[in-house]
C-alpha cells in the first residue's frame, strides 16, 4: 500500500518522531511555534480597524501599506507575505477569497476559519457572491459595487470595513469590540447591537 494513504494520525506521529530525531523540528520548537501562532487573532485586525476609524493618518498608512500599519500596532510581519488592505465605502463592498487554496491574512486575523477553507465558499465567492453573503446575513444593496478579491499569489488581503453609524465619540477599544473576523474578510459588516 502507498504509505501516504496511512491514517493521518499515524503519519503525523511518524513524521514528528523523525523530525525530532533529525533535529529538524523538535518538540520544544513545535510547542513554541504553536504558542506564537495562537497569539495572532482577529483582535489584532480589529485594533487596526478601530485606529483607522479614529486616526486619518493611520488610515492612509493602512491603505497604502498594510504591512507597515500592522507593524505600527506591534504585529510581527517580518518574513511574512505583504498585507494589502481594501477599503469598504458607501459605493463599494470588498469580499476576500482564495479559490486555489486558503491564503488568509493570518498575521492580523489568526488561523483561517473553517468556512474560508471550504469548497463551497471558494467556489461561490467568485460567481454568486451576493446570494452567498445573504446566507451570512449580509445584504449588499443592488446599487453598491461588489468586488471579490481572489488571493492567488504573494499578498494577503484584509478588508477595512465602514464605521457603523451611532459610534460617534467611542473609544478605540469600544470600536475594536465591534469588529469581528468576518467583517475583515467582507462576509459581514460591523453592527452596533
Amino acid at each position: 500500500m502507498n504509505i501516504l494513504e496511512a491514517p493521518s494520525e499515524k503519519l503525523l506521529a511518524g513524521i514528528r518522531k523523525l523530525l525530532a530525531e533529525k533535529n529538524i523540528a523538535t518538540e520544544a520548537e513545535i510547542a513554541e511555534r504553536i504558542r506564537i501562532t495562537d497569539e495572532a487573532s482577529p483582535a489584532r485586525g480589529a485594533a487596526m480597524v478601530a485606529r483607522a476609524w479614529t486616526d486619518p493618518d493611520y488610515k492612509a498608512l493602512m491603505l497604502r501599506d498594510g504591512t507597515l500599519a500592522a507593524e505600527a500596532m506591534g504585529v510581527p510581519m517580518r518574513g511574512l507575505p505583504p498585507l494589502g488592505v481594501l477599503e469598504n465605502t458607501a459605493e463599494l463592498h470588498n469580499l476576500v477569497v482564495c479559490t486555489l487554496c486558503s491564503c488568509y491574512p493570518r498575521a492580523v486575523l489568526g488561523y483561517p476559519p473553517f468556512w474560508f477553507k471550504s469548497a463551497a465558499y471558494r467556489a461561490r465567492a467568485v460567481r454568486d457572491p451576493r446570494a452567498m453573503l445573504v446566507e451570512f446575513g449580509t445584504t449588499i444593496p443592488d446599487d453598491m459595487k461588489l468586488e471579490v478579491v481572489d488571493s492567488t499569489a504573494d499578498y494577503r488581503w484584509m478588508v477595512l470595513p465602514r464605521r457603523p453609524a451611532g459610534t460617534e465619540g467611542w473609544s478605540a477599544e469600544q470600536l475594536a469590540a465591534l469588529v469581528h473576523e468576518g467583517d475583515m474578510i467582507g462576509i459581514t459588516v460591523p453592527r452596533v447591537k
Binding site: 467568485v126 451576493r130 446599487d143 453598491m144 459595487k145 468586488e147 478579491v149 499569489a153
Partner: peptide, 23 residues
C-alpha cells in the same frame, strides 16, 4: 487585474467585479 464578473459566468446579476493577483 480587475475583471467584470459578468464576462466570466453566464448567470450574472449585479455590478460585481473580481480583482486578482496575476504574474
Amino acid at each position: 487585474v480587475r475583471f467584470p464578473m459578468a464576462g466570466l459566468w453566464p448567470d450574472q446579476h449585479g455590478n460585481n467585479t473580481v480583482l486578482v493577483e496575476l504574474y
